[in-house]
């Protein structure tokens, strides 16, 4: 009747609530039905407090928020389908007015939740309040171990605030990750090592690296990044869209479904092809289209052409 599955030592520092949320997530992820994604990404808003050089929303995407009833409907359907995790995405999701309420609703539906944030607005008080509301984990964007390089990309002073947000999330007992955009795996390997060291030294529970290519069209960077991580991080502290030992990226495997602030559905936040709209259809219908689209050759991790 009972199964036994150990949790990594590093997670023993989490709050009891976060550890339990992680255990529940792992059980649900392991038992997830075939063809159901591991994560629903909710693009809660196109608004952001920053204007990072590499961001697709730079230069204005309007002030668009995902209507709360639509966000809630997405969470309910995702939970019913067996999706184990919801990721609060943006823009900057901390600017979404009813974020705490949504985190609570997701928790009540049994979903593990993750906040993907630039960290500029994440104080300890806010992190603690969100943890109490039901948030399970935080991913803080930090694109370089060099404060000067990060600030060059995101704005003066942003590195310091992001580093503080990382500390705040850890102090609040949340599962905490560093998230970085990687622009090249060759010359950028020094940064990769530096970021890995920084994330580990900060006490983060892991890191995620997103390959970013400014040119539209197929890119070799995702595979190069995955190979670099296998060399630099054999223990698997860091992840990328190309999971170790699996073919294709998370979007190509239909392991992610993204809902944008306008209600549009895509295979991931950076995918070019649309899968419909939640205003006129369902997540299930988008997943059926996703399965067909994922067999195509285009890598989604590209800036819009």
């Amino acid at each position: 009747m009972a199964q036994r599955t150990p949790v990594k030592e590093q997670f023993s520092r989490l709050s009891p609530a976060s550890r339990l949320a992680l255990a529940v997530f792992r059980v649900r992820a392991a038992g997830k039905p075939a063809g159901i994604p591991g994560s629903l990404f909710l693009g809660l808003t196109s608004r952001c407090s920053l204007s990072c050089l590499h961001c697709k929303y730079r230069g204005g995407a309007g002030d668009l928020d995902l209507p709360y009833p639509l966000a809630l409907a997405a969470l309910r359907e995702a939970a019913a389908l067996g999706v184990p995790k919801a990721v609060f995405f943006g823009g900057e999701p901390l600017l979404y007015p009813r974020l705490a309420e949504l985190a609570g609703a997701a928790r009540d539906l049994g979903l593990f939740t993750e906040l993907d944030t630039n960290g500029q607005e994440l104080t300890f008080a806010r992190a603690r309040a969100l943890a109490r509301a039901g948030l399970s984990s935080v991913m803080v964007s930090l694109h370089s171990p060099s404060p000067e390089e990060h600030d060059r990309l995101c704005g003066r002073g942003t590195y310091q605030k992001a580093a503080r947000a990382l500390a705040a999330a850890l102090k609040a007992g949340l599962v905490t990750y560093v998230s970085s955009c990687v622009f090249s795996a060759g010359p950028g390997e020094r940064d990769l090592r530096g970021l890995l060291a920084f994330a580990k030294d900060s006490g983060a529970h892991g890191a995620r690296f997103l390959p970013y290519s400014p040119r539209a069209g197929a890119s070799r960077l995702p595979a190069a990044l995955a190979a670099a991580l296998r060399r630099e991080d054999p223990a698997g502290f860091a992840g990328t869209c190309l999971a170790r030992g699996r073919r294709g990226c998370a979007a190509q495997r239909a392991d992610i479904l993204y809902l944008g602030p306008s209600g549009d559905l895509r295979a991931c936040p950076y995918a070019l092809a649309g899968l419909g709209s939640l205003r006129r259809g369902t997540l299930a219908a988008a997943l059926r289209r996703c399965g067909r689209a994922a067999r195509g050759p285009v890598r989604p991790c590209q800036k819009r052409a």
């Binding site: 009972a2 030592e9 255990a23 059980v27 049994g110």
Partner: peptide, 18 residues
């Protein structure tokens, strides 16, 4: 969660599903 209970032993960090 659903019809399943997930139990976590905070001392050992081991968890079980029923």
């Amino acid at each position: 969660t659903g019809d399943e209970a997930v139990i976590l032993n905070l001392e050992t960090s081991e968890y079980y599903s029923l």
